[in-house]
Design a protein around this nucleic acid. Structure first.
Length: 492
RNA sequence: GGCCCCAUCGUCUAGCGGUCUAGGAUGUCACCCUUUCAAGGUGAAGACACGGGUUCGAGUCCCGUUGGGGCUACCA
C-alpha cells in the first residue's frame, strides 16, 4: 500500500489539508504501507518560497511523518513536481503523438471571448475545441507566429465514463459534458491533471485519498489513466469540512466565526500557537468523517492506526465542531504525565515573557492539569507564580460576597496570624486551621478563602488556595496577606 | 445556469430490513460535590427533511421533491 499527501505550497497548511494528510497517513500505517509527501508546486504564479518549510513543520508537529518525500528522499523521487518537468513534457508529447491530446494555440483573450459568447447564449462555459482538429499546415502557421501552445486532452466526445470510488461506489459521467482540459501549460509546466496522474503512476501510488473537491475531475483523470494505458489506483474522495454553521467549505478567505463572533482559525499554525496538543488535533480530525468503531471518541493515533479503514469513512461533509476540539484538548491534557505537561507548558510561559524555574513549574502542574483546556490558559490561570514582582488585585476584589472592607481587613489580619503560627503547610493542616478561623469570625469558608485567594494570587479565579500557599511559601504568603489587609485600611 | 456529491438530536456521529418507544459524544440546562475556576457524578430537553413506492415489516432499499455542498481556470 502506498498513499500520498500532495499539497501545493501556497502558505501554511489548512486544517482540511491536515485531515486529508491524516487519513492517508492512517491508511498507510494501518496496512504497514508507505506514506509519501509530494509537493505540487506547478503554479508559478502562486509560488511561495517559505510555504514548503511551514507545511512540513505543521505535518511534523502533528506527528505525520512521511516515509518518502522532501528531506527524507526515497527511490521514486524527486518528490517536488517542479523538478519533474521533463517527465510531464515527455508524456504530454506522447499523448499528442498517440492522437490523444493536441496542441492548442488559442489566446486567453479568445478563450474569454468564447465564454462570453456562450454565456450570452445561456450555454455552459467551456473551450470550444477550436484547435482539436487543426491541420499540420494550420499548426505550422501558428508556430511561425511564435505562439507557445498548450497541450489539451482529447476527451471522448460521446459515451460515458464510469468511475469507482472506494467510499461512494460507482458514478457515471456523460463525456459530452466534459472539457478538453489543459494538460501542459504554455510555460511548460503541467496542470494538476497531468502531473497527478503521471506522478501517481510513477510513484506507484496504490490508493488516492483526496478531498471531494476533486470529484468533478475524476472522469478526466480516469480517461487519462486509460489513455496512458496504466493501471489506476483505488480512489477515495473524502468529504469536506464545512464552516461551523454548515454554510460553505471552511476557508481562510471567509474566516468562519463561532456563536460569539470570534474568528475560528483555519490554519494549522494558528492551532499550534493557540495551545492545542497535536494528539488532540489529530484525534479531533480523525473524528470528523471517520468513526472509531465503538463509542470511544478519545483515542491515540496508535489506536486509530489499528482500526483505520475506508469502510468507516463518512460520505457526507460535516460542519467543523469547534467545541469538541476544546473538550478533546482538555481530555488529552489530563492524560499527559505531569512531566510531559510541564515540558509543553514551559515554552508557553516563556513566550508570555516569564522566566520559568523548572522546579516551580513541576509543583504548579498538578494544580493546573485538570483546569486547562488549552496550554495557553496557564498564563491567565497560574502566570502569577512566575511573575517577578507580584501584581496585587484592586482592593475591592478582596471583598467577598456579603462582606465589607473592614470585615475583610480583619479577616485577613487574623488569617495571617493563623498562618504564621502554622508549621505544617499540608492541605489538611491549613484547611483545619482556616476553617476554624472562619467559624470563629462567623464567616463562611467560601468568604474567607476567597479573600485569601485574591490576596495571594491577585486574581479571583486561580489555583486552589492551600496548595498555592504551600508553593509560594509561608513568608511570601504572609507578606501578600498583610499587604492586602493594608490596602483595605488605606481605602477605608 | 450546467454537471456531480450528500442528507439521523444545534454540532460530530452509531445504525448496514425486524433487537429503534433511534444509541454515544459535545454543547445547553438542572441538581450533587465544592475555597474560585475546572474536573467529576446524576439527570433533562434535543434528530431519522418531505412525498411516493418495494416489503409481512423501512432510519436502513428504489424513485421524486426539497435542502445543503462541491466543481465549472494555462489554481491546486
Amino acid at each position: 500500500m502506498r498513499t500520498r499527501f500532495a499539497p501545493s505550497p501556497t502558505g501554511s497548511l489548512h486544517i482540511g489539508g491536515l485531515r486529508t494528510a491524516l487519513f492517508n497517513w492512517l491508511f498507510a500505517r494501518h496496512y504497514g504501507g508507505t506514506f509519501i509527501l509530494r509537493i505540487e508546486d506547478t503554479d508559478q504564479k502562486r509560488f511561495d518560497p517559505t510555504a514548503l518549510e511551514t507545511l512540513m513543520e505543521a505535518l511534523r508537529w502533528a506527528g505525520l511523518h512521511w516515509d518518502e518525500g522532501p528531506e527524507v528522499g526515497g527511490s521514486y523521487g524527486p518528490y517536488v513536481q517542479s523538478e519533474r518537468l521533463h517527465l510531464y513534457q515527455q508524456w504530454a508529447k506522447w499523448l499528442v503523438e498517440q492522437d490523444k491530446a493536441y496542441t492548442c494555440y488559442c489566446s486567453p483573450e479568445r478563450l474569454q471571448q468564447v465564454n462570453r459568447e456562450k454565456e450570452a447564449r445561456k450555454e455552459p462555459p467551456g473551450y470550444d475545441r477550436h484547435c482539436r482538429n487543426l491541420t499540420a499546415a494550420q499548426r505550422a502557421a501558428y508556430e511561425a507566429q511564435g505562439i507557445k501552445p498548450v497541450i489539451r486532452f482529447k476527451m471522448p466526445l460521446d459515451g460515458q465514463t464510469v468511475v469507482q470510488d472506494a467510499i461512494r461506489g460507482e458514478s457515471v459521467f456523460d463525456n459530452a459534458t466534459q472539457q478538453d482540459a489543459v494538460l501542459l501549460k504554455s510555460d511548460g509546466f503541467p496542470t494538476y491533471h497531468l502531473a497527478v496522474v503521471v506522478d501517481d503512476h510513477f510513484m506507484q501510488i496504490s490508493h488516492v485519498m483526496r478531498a471531494i473537491e476533486w470529484f468533478p475531475s475524476f472522469p478526466l483523470h480516469a480517461q487519462l489513466w486509460q489513455a496512458f494505458g496504466w493501471d489506476m489506483p483505488v480512489y477515495a474522495h473524502l468529504p469536506v469540512i464545512l464552516n461551523p454553521n454548515g454554510k460553505g467549505k471552511i476557508s481562510k478567505r471567509n474566516p468562519p466565526k463561532d456563536k460569539y463572533g470570534n474568528i475560528i482559525p483555519v490554519m494549522v499554525h494558528d492551532y499550534m500557537q493557540a495551545g492545542y496538543l497535536p494528539e488532540a488535533m489529530t484525534n479531533f480530525l480523525a473524528n470528523i468523517g471517520w468513526n472509531f468503531g465503538d463509542e470511544r471518541e478519545v483515542f491515540t493515533m496508535d489506536e486509530a492506526i489499528e482500526r483505520f479503514d475506508l469502510s468507516r469513512v463518512n460520505r457526507a461533509s460535516s460542519a467543523f465542531p469547534t467545541e469538541k476540539l476544546d473538550w478533546l484538548n482538555g481530555e488529552h491534557i489530563r492524560r499527559l504525565t505531569p512531566d510531559d505537561l510541564a515540558r509543553r507548558l514551559k515554552p508557553v510561559l516563556e513566550n508570555a515573557g516569564f522566566e520559568v524555574d523548572d522546579e516551580l513549574l513541576r509543583k504548579v502542574v498538578p494544580l493546573v492539569q485538570i483546569r486547562l483546556k488549552t496550554l495557553n490558559e496557564i498564563v491567565d490561570l497560574a502566570g502569577f507564580f512566575f511573575r517577578e514582582t507580584f501584581v496585587a488585585a484592586p482592593p475591592e476584589e478582596l471583598v467577598q460576597d456579603k462582606m465589607d472592607a473592614a470585615m475583610t481587613c480583619r479577616a485577613l489580619d487574623r488569617a495571617a496570624d493563623v498562618l504564621a503560627g502554622l508549621d505544617d503547610l499540608s492541605h489538611e493542616a491549613q484547611e483545619a486551621a482556616m476553617r476554624g478561623l472562619a467559624d470563629e469570625l462567623g464567616l463562611k469558608p467560601k468568604q474567607l478563602f476567597g479573600a485569601l485567594r485574591v490576596a495571594i494570587t491577585g486574581q479571583r479565579v486561580a489555583t486552589p488556595l492551600f496548595e498555592t500557599i504551600a508553593i509560594v511559601g509561608k513568608d511570601v504568603a504572609l507578606e501578600r496577606i498583610r499587604n492586602a489587609a493594608q490596602s483595605l485600611v488605606v481605602q477605608s
